[in-house]
């Protein structure tokens, strides 16, 4: 009688089979076929051939779009932080009463759940084309992003230190300034830099739906099949994002 040292793992096999079936089914549903892929690879070749070399002739347009993206990022970050500070405090369950914390958390969750491009498209319809819609959309996204982090950071503070300040007879604002802020300040600054970094990425995109910035230029270039200009814009965006990531990484490392 021989014993098999590696008995067949039936759950794994069945799981694998279900996964495979799903992949085939979903591919069929989405119309992804071998023929289409082959055709696509041919197209990709032509596409890449037309992208290179990148065309920087219209650099004026490029710089204008990039600067507008930068402005959108700076403004939405600033407004987002100013709005998120009280929201984060209101949402922190250790300092806020439940009747305030619960709805605030709900509001922040809604801001988080809606993708910023969807928010942007709605603001474009409500406020018209341009940077204003972009700033509004990214402000909403900023709240979803940073108010949650603020609230979590506040929930992690030591309540003993807060209790001591409270015992000295300090007013609620005094307790905040001496008991809470010192414990969270450096983390908050880190979050804010992270937010600026994230908003800079996103501000290069909201233009696709008409909310200002380089994204509009990119989308227009795509629609006109100016693929060499597309390539130039993409290089500029990636360079900007890369630069921002390096700088923000440095600052956050220095803060630690």
């Amino acid at each position: 009688m021989t014993r098999n040292p590696f008995p067949a793992n039936w759950p794994l096999r069945i799981g694998g089979l279900i996964g495979l079936t799903y992949i085939i089914y979903a591919s069929a549903q989405l119309g992804i076929t071998g023929e289409r892929l082959l055709h696509g690879f041919g197209e990709a070749q032509r596409f890449l051939a037309r992208m290179f070399p990148p065309n920087f002739e219209r650099w004026g347009l490029l710089v204008e779009g990039m600067l507008e993206s930068l402005q959108i990022a700076v403004l939405s970050t600033a407004i987002g932080i100013v709005l998120s500070l009280p929201l984060g405090l209101m949402a922190a369950r250790n300092l806020s009463p439940v009747w305030l914390a619960a709805p605030t958390r709900g509001f922040i969750a809604v801001c988080r759940s809606l993708h910023y491009v969807i928010v942007a498209i709605i603001f474009v319809k409500a406020l018209g084309f341009g940077a204003l819609a972009g700033v509004a959309a990214l402000t909403v996204a900023s709240i979803g992003f940073i108010a949650k982090l603020f609230a979590e950071a506040i929930e992690e503070i030591s309540m003993k230190q807060v209790e001591a300040v409270r015992a000295s007879g300090a007013s609620p604002a005094g307790v905040l300034i001496y008991g809470v802020v010192p414990q969270v300040a450096s983390r908050f600054i880190g979050f804010c830099i992270y937010l600026l970094d994230s908003n800079l990425r996103n501000s290069t995109l909201v233009g696709i739906v008409g909310a200002g910035g380089i994204g509009g230029t990119l989308f227009a270039a795509f629609k006109r099949f100016d693929y060499d200009f597309v390539c130039a814009i993409l290089i500029a965006i990636i360079a900007l994002i890369f630069l921002a990531e390096v700088i923000s990484g440095r600052i956050r490392a220095a803060l630690r």
Partner: peptide
């Protein structure tokens, strides 16, 4: 409360403030 001082078992100083700021916390009231 400001007329009642309190000393705690685990000191409960605000860790990230300076000693001076911690002492001055006693004047917050």
């Amino acid at each position: 409360r400001r007329r009642i001082g309190m000393v705690f078992q685990e000191y409960n100083l605000v860790e990230r403030l300076t000693v001076m700021e911690n002492v001055l916390t006693g004047r917050l009231g």
